[in-house]
């Protein structure tokens, strides 16, 4: 694996306001790095600096062998960037627009046709390739935005909230596309959606008020945010006394006759026992759901952890 991006103590101030504060991380080929954070956390600012749209106040960004401040042209050659609003010339057709993007990214003339075909196919744009961009739906426009970032076959792809404003089917398609791309590229995506990060990212960084507070593999993160509690829904009333007798159950919170929330010990997962118990007592179990923390709760818990 080769290191594609090396970010070293990166900061950015807007006047006196600090938008990004002392961030360091690296990106390797084959990785999908997720930037997780609520709105205004500094995700977009960081990505703008990585893509060369914004000069940093402090720190260093190294793209492959080039620093973005001293060799911006060579560094940008290795990056495909999709900003939060896809930059589209709406009075062009899809093909015209992508050819223009290829040209300004320095794709040589005889390669344009090949890369264009390739990108159109990858982003499933072949059926609309001669349509005017302004006549296409938001989902297609987002995909053209991604296609624009891929056209020069960069090693690094930076996507700023690529699934915002799309319907579930389109979100699924784009996530699949990202997974497919991650095979031979390094990808950075930003999102405020935890489940999206879980699905596509291999590594997650949580950014809050400009600071990087978590930097972990996605599986570890999911493990750590599992809150030892279950939500149980049934068709017939639940007898709490029976539940309380099961090993590992710590506390029971009754929401209604048909729904309870169970807290359990970390070492002893009682899920199996609860299911068996419900069968024996004929409660007609509908749902057992492990409760996850929301992004905000994770922030709070991590900040608390840091402070204590």
């Amino acid at each position: 694996m080769s290191t594609l991006i090396e970010v070293d103590h990166l900061s950015r101030y807007f006047g006196k306001v600090c938008a990004v504060n002392d961030i360091s991380f690296t990106l390797e080929r084959g990785q999908v790095l997720g930037f997780l954070g609520i709105n205004g956390a500094g995700k977009t600012t960081t990505l703008q600096m990585l893509s060369g749209n914004l000069a940093p106040s402090n720190g260093n960004i190294k793209i492959k062998d080039f620093t973005i401040i001293n060799n911006p042209i060579q560094a940008k050659q290795c990056i495909g960037y999709l900003p939060d609003t896809p930059p589209l010339y709406k009075d062009l057709t899809v093909t015209e627009f992508l050819i223009y993007c290829a040209k300004i990214h320095g794709v040589s003339k005889h390669e344009i046709k090949k890369t264009l075909e390739n990108v159109l196919q990858r982003c499933a744009l072949i059926s609309v390739k001669n349509r005017l961009i302004s006549n296409l739906s938001k989902g297609y426009q987002q995909r053209i935005g991604i296609a624009q970032a891929l056209i020069h076959n960069p090693d690094i792809i930076i996507l700023d909230e690529p699934t915002v404003g799309l319907d579930p089917l389109q979100i699924k398609e784009i996530r699949q596309l990202i997974k497919k791309l991650s095979e031979d590229h390094g990808i950075i995506i930003s999102t405020h959606n935890l489940s999206e990060a879980e699905e596509v990212c291999s590594q997650v960084q949580i950014i809050h008020k400009g600071c990087l507070i978590v930097k972990e593999r996605i599986t570890e993160l999911m493990q750590s945010i599992k809150q030892c509690s279950l939500l149980i829904t049934t068709k017939k009333p639940i007898d709490c006394v029976v539940l309380n007798a099961i090993d590992g159950v710590n506390a029971i919170e009754k929401i209604s006759d048909y729904q309870v929330k169970i807290n359990y010990l970390d070492s002893l997962d009682p899920t199996q026992s609860i299911i068996q118990c419900s069968l024996l007592n004929n409660w007609a179990l509908i749902e057992v759901t492990p409760i996850k923390k929301s992004l905000e709760e994770i922030f709070i818990s991590y900040i608390d952890k840091e402070q204590s």
């Binding site: 000069a55 106040s57 402090n58 720190g59 401040i69």
Partner: peptide, 8 residues
């Protein structure tokens, strides 16, 4: 003291 001011 900051890079963007230096470039400016």
């Amino acid at each position: 003291h900051s890079i963007h001011q230096r470039i400016s």
